[in-house]
Amino acid sequence: MNSWKLKEIVVMSVLSVVFAVVYLAFLPVGKILVGFFGPIGYDLIFGIWFIVSIIAAYIIRKPGAAFLSETIAAAVEVLLGNAVGPMLLVSGMIQGLGAESAFAMTRYKRYDLFTLMLAGVMAAVFSFVWGYFLSGYAALSTGYVAAMFIARIISGAIISGVAGKALSDALAKTGVLSSFALGKEHRRKHAA
């Protein structure tokens, strides 16, 4: 934790706070989708719920960014009042660990689109395994569960990986990230 600057921690936690609100805002969207498609409705947009870990890791590029940001976001969600309560904190930690594992696999060296999508996928895998245990997906038919799993993986790759990157890049363009790893990379690219 000593390699982290206070600035990075505060920015990370502010991102988490912002996205915690976004996460809560997407719950009703998920519910509507569930109404249409059954439990798989959530999986279609599940990627939304990993996005902060990808954004924070991509911007700050320090070990732990993905895990911590997702955990904080989950904690804030719990504080704001969420149906699943403290369990959500654990879910958040597990999702964060999933994303973190992808960055760890690259030894925190690569932050390209592939790695970010992989992080989304890993978060999806981790969260699915957890969900399988927690929410009793086993009660559902095998084919349906498989479909859920695939939907969640794709959603993780696209929504959190691709969209997370796009959003961070748009932010970097404003110049506010100039003292963070992503901003520095942007500047190097522009200078070149």
């Binding site: 600035k7 921690i9 991102l15 959003l167 404003t174 506010v176 003292s179």
Partner: peptide, 21 residues
């Protein structure tokens, strides 16, 4: 909405961190 909101939040967070230090 998102970009100015986030950009502003990041800027402020940075200043807050500086003030804390």
């Amino acid at each position: 909405f998102a970009i100015p909101l986030l950009a502003g939040a990041i800027r402020k967070a940075e200043r807050t961190a500086i003030a804390m230090e």
